[in-house]
Amino acid sequence: MKLVPGQKAPLFVTKDIFGNTVDLNQIQNEKILLSFFRYAECAMCNLQIAKIMKSKDLFAKKGIQLITVFESPTESLQSSIAYRHQFDFPVIADTNRDLYDLYKVHPSWFKTMRTLSAKGFQHLAEATKKGYKAGGKVEGTLHQIPADFLIGKDKVIQIAHYGNSVIDHFPLEKVFQMS
């Protein structure tokens, strides 16, 4: 059963790709945007990370801590995501899908097929134009669908967005409006 707004967020303690501890319960006085992605070389995922990076000052201003989760192993995320994007938020390698399962983020071939639309091809063209290769190395589940959770300072879920396609993340503008 999917998680819903008003529900307590499932708490976890893990390590990011640089060995730093990420403990949801220890994040105080900030909201948390927990975003689930596919794999390190996913062009659509890298396009979303690039959009996030353009808004990093707004994340700080609004008091939102971003945490991202990928299926790829640490080494791939370090070389692909860390190398491409100068970020200052935790990136978690969840190769065993523990956090995906905890947050009920599941793959879907049907939703993946929805990406084969004019909007999906437009996103892919934008991603490849920025240098993210289409059809990169798949490390994880090809048909993984993204999800985003805005968690309040009280650790209650404010937004539970399960994507309807590979490109469907909750709009950052709406996240910032709610904060």
Rank of each mutant, 00 (worst) to 15 (best):
T21V: 10
L33K: 06
K31V: 00
I17L: 06
I27M: 11
A82F: 06
Q26K: 15
I92K: 11
V13P: 03
I92V: 10
I92C: 11
Q65H: 08
N96W: 04
D23A: 07
L77E: 00
K56L: 09
I17K: 02
K56S: 14
I49A: 09
C45N: 04
P73V: 05
G63F: 02
L34G: 01
T68Y: 06
M44D: 03
A40Y: 01
A82D: 13
F36C: 12
I49D: 00
K51A: 15
Q78A: 03
F89D: 09
Y39E: 05
N29T: 00
M53C: 12
Y39M: 02
F59L: 12
D88W: 09
G19R: 07
I49S: 03
L66V: 15
C42H: 00
I67V: 15
H85R: 06
D57H: 04
L66I: 14
Q26H: 05
C45V: 03
F70H: 07
K31A: 12
A82K: 11
P73I: 11
T95G: 11
F18C: 12
I52C: 07
F89C: 13
A93Q: 00
V22S: 08
I81R: 06
L99T: 09
P90G: 01
K62C: 10
K51Q: 13
D98H: 08
Q48P: 00
D94H: 11
S55M: 14
C45Y: 05
K61T: 09
G63I: 12
C42Y: 05
A82T: 10
R38F: 01
Q28R: 13
L66S: 07
F36D: 02
F59V: 02
S35F: 11
T14R: 01
H85P: 07
A93L: 02
M53S: 14
L99Q: 02
V13S: 12
T21H: 00
K62V: 03
I49N: 11
K54T: 07
D94S: 08
N29R: 11
S79A: 05
C42D: 12
F37M: 04
C42F: 01
M53G: 00
F37E: 02
D57I: 09
K15M: 06
V69L: 05
Q78V: 09
G63C: 11
V13R: 13
R84N: 12
L77C: 05
M53R: 11
L47S: 12
A60C: 07
Q28E: 15
K54N: 13
L33T: 02
R84Y: 05
F37T: 01
P90Q: 08
I32F: 07
